[in-house]
Design a protein around this nucleic acid. Structure first.
Lengths: 149, 149
DNA sequence: TAAATAATTGAATATTATTCAATAAAATGA
DNA sequence: TCATTTTATTGAATAATATTCAATTATTTA
């Protein structure tokens, strides 16, 4: 066995997909060259960042999903981007936003289960600069990445 | 002019993309038929829900992003799925989760600007069953849909 | 350990994306 | 206004890619 599947999942999380020009052309009843031209324009303008897959996360061992409100220490407070960009490297984190209100960052995290989440919090979130967190656990996901489930 | 662009954006939000088998085969140094077989298996198992595009949302007039904590009325409290599935129909909503804690639902919403958000809250969120909301506005997005920005 | 099932692969074919050149439409600016 | 430039559309040809198929190998099952 070659263990292709985990490699595919990893590649598909961020890219390695492409538009179906012929199918779109049929759907919109336009010549495929017209569709091609318009897609390339969107890509050139960088309006499209990438083409990727959306998973049934429970089926790829990422069924435990949480939103993490993060409070930063006074010395990191002024530059949340630094910590944010550092956190962005972690593949468990689906999204990172700098937000208004009582907390500085909001993370969306996907791991296999509660044990793995505890480990994630201990090793990734508990670090200099982060003084307090509040985890909102997702019981059920009804929609993700604009895709209804 | 044919106004192809908005149609493309709409299609790409949920699908109309496909894996780049030849490119993956080159990357992983495996025969493309092996890659093809493994991808089809993931699709058959429904581990992959769809292939779609990720946008620079500011460039497609969806630069204003918020997370909305939602509190349901006592009579809806027991069945948050009903309201959730109804909300899922709205294209401005990227994700919907039923969560633990003080709030019942957490939405991620993308609109053009603050005015459009006010309108969205008035027309979509303010409805029977939703008794209170708390909007966390994203100042800056560092990562979305697993894609770093 | 035999039989059944799942996974890998090369060769052939079908489908699709891309390039190119021509035309048409829209925007620009004196 | 209208000449000029830029942007968008399109068909035909080509290049690249996905898919099917059949054979082989590896793995699982009873």
């Amino acid at each position: 066995m070659k263990e292709i599947t985990p490699k595919l999942i990893s590649l598909f999380k961020e890219g390695y997909c492409t538009p179906q020009i012929a199918r779109i052309a049929r759907k919109l009843k336009e010549p495929s060259t017209t569709i091609h031209y318009n897609i390339k324009k969107l890509e050139k303008e960088k309006a499209i960042k990438t083409y990727k897959a959306v998973f049934d996360y429970a089926k790829i061992a990422e069924g435990f999903c949480t939103f993490v409100l993060v409070s930063l220490s006074p010395d990191e407070y002024g530059d949340p981007e630094r910590i944010g960009k550092d956190l962005a490297k972690h593949p468990e984190i689906e999204s990172i936003d700098i937000i208004t209100g009582d907390w500085e960052l909001l993370l969306k995290v996907r791991v296999k289960n509660q044990d793995d989440y505890y480990h994630f919090v201990k090793t990734v979130i508990s670090r200099k600069g982060i003084v307090k967190i509040n985890s909102l656990v997702s019981f059920k996901q009804l929609k993700t990445e604009f895709v209804a489930l």
